[in-house]
Write a protein that binds this DNA or RNA. Structure first.
Lengths: 173, 173
DNA sequence: TATTGACATGTAGAATCTGACATGTCACGT
DNA sequence: ACGTGACATGTCAGATTCTACATGTCAATA
C-alpha cells in the first residue's frame, strides 16, 4: 500500500496532476519509491472514488489537478503515525554490490566505476537542489541526508575500485 | 528479474535449500531485496527446469540443496557484467522520511526515535557480524559499507529528533 | 508419550507492477 | 501549413509479489 500513501503524501505537500506526480516519482522520490504513470492514474481514480482525493482544478489538455480531502489527510496521518513501517527494501543496485565479489577484478572495477559515475551525477543534482532551496524550505534536511549518504557511498566505491585495480583489474580504462 | 539473479547469486556463493535462501533474504540480503518462501520455491523449480540450477543433495525432512550449473554461472556473470543496472528503488522507510514534515513535531520526534532504535539494532547486528568475520572473508567491505551508512543515518536521525524536540515535540517520552 | 517449535516445501487467489498500446492537446519553429 | 516534442490521460495483458492455506519431519522437553 506504499504507493497509495506516497501519492497522498505528495498531494498533501502540493496538489498535483497525474502527470506532475509521475515526474515527482522520477525526481524527488526516485531514491524512495518507483511508479509509472500507468500505476498512478488508476490509483488517483481509486483515491477519488474512495473520497480521499478530489479534483480541485481542470486545466489545459485535459489535465486534472488533485488535492486531498479531509479524510485523505486523516488516512495519511494515520498511516504515518500509527502504522508500523515495513522495513523491507527492493534495490537492485544493492543486490549487485552484494554480489560484486563474484566478478573478476577487472569487471568488478568497471562495475564500481559505473556506480561511481551514477553517484557523482546524483550528488551534482542534489547540490543543485540544495543551492536553489528557499531558506524556510522544510525539505532541506532530506537533501542533506542524500548528500551525506552519497558521500559515504562515493568514498566506499572509490576504495573498492582501487582495491580491484590492485587485485589485477589494472590499467586505465 | 532481480529475484532470479539474487537467487543465482546466493547459490553461487553457497549451495542452499529454499529454506536457507529464505533466511538469507531475511538477514544478509534484507537491505537489498525482499522475498518470501512462496516466491523462492517456484523460482528454484523454474531455475532447475531451465537448467540454471540443479539439486546437488537431498537431506533430512525432504530438504533439497541447489547449486548452480555451468549455464547458471554464465547467466549470472552475464547479468552482472553486461546488463545495465535498474536504479529504481522501493523503500517504504525512505518514503516516510520524505513525508515526516507532514507530521506534528511530537509525532515526528517519535517517528525519528523509532527509526533510530531500528538503526541502532541493525548496527549492533552488523558489528557482531564484523567481529565474527574470517580474515579472508570477501564480504567484509559490504559489512563496512553498512556500518558507515548506518552511522550517517543515525547522526541525521538524532539531529532531526533534536530539532523536532526544540520545535515543540518536547518532554521525555 | 504428548506437545511444542524449528525445519522444510509447496500451492492458490488476490494485489501490485511493468511495458506496450492508444489517443489527443498545445506551443514553437520552419 | 506542417512537423516535432513536451504535455496529458488512459487501458490492458502479462509478470511479479503477497497473504493465506496446506502438509509433513524431526529434536527437545515436559
Amino acid at each position: 500500500m506504499s504507493l497509495r500513501y506516497a501519492i497522498l503524501g505528495l498531494l498533501a505537500r502540493q496538489p498535483s496532476s497525474g502527470y506532475e506526480l509521475t515526474r515527482k516519482f522520477d525526481s524527488s522520490l526516485r531514491t524512495a519509491w518507483h511508479a509509472q504513470h500507468s500505476q498512478i492514474y488508476p490509483e488517483l481514480a481509486k483515491l477519488e472514488a474512495e473520497g480521499l482525493a478530489e479534483i480541485i482544478k481542470r486545466g489545459a489538455r485535459g489535465s486534472k489537478t488533485y488535492g486531498l480531502t479531509e479524510s485523505g489527510h486523516d488516512a495519511l496521518r494515520h498511516w504515518l503515525v500509527e502504522v508500523a513501517p515495513d522495513r523491507s527494501q527492493r534495490n537492485e543496485s544493492a543486490v549487485r554490490l552484494f554480489l560484486t565479489q563474484l566478478m573478476a577484478p577487472r569487471e568488478r572495477r568497471l562495475a564500481f566505476e559505473r556506480d561511481l559515475a551514477y553517484v557523482h551525477q546524483q550528488t551534482a543534482e542534489l547540490r543543485l537542489i540544495k543551492d536553489q532551496l528557499a531558506p524556510d524550505e522544510p525539505f532541506a534536511p532530506q537533501v542533506e541526508l542524500g548528500l551525506r549518504t552519497n558521500a559515504v557511498l562515493s568514498a566506499w566505491l572509490q576504495e573498492q575500485a582501487d582495491a580491484a585495480t590492485r587485485e589485477g583489474g589494472d590499467g586505465p580504462q
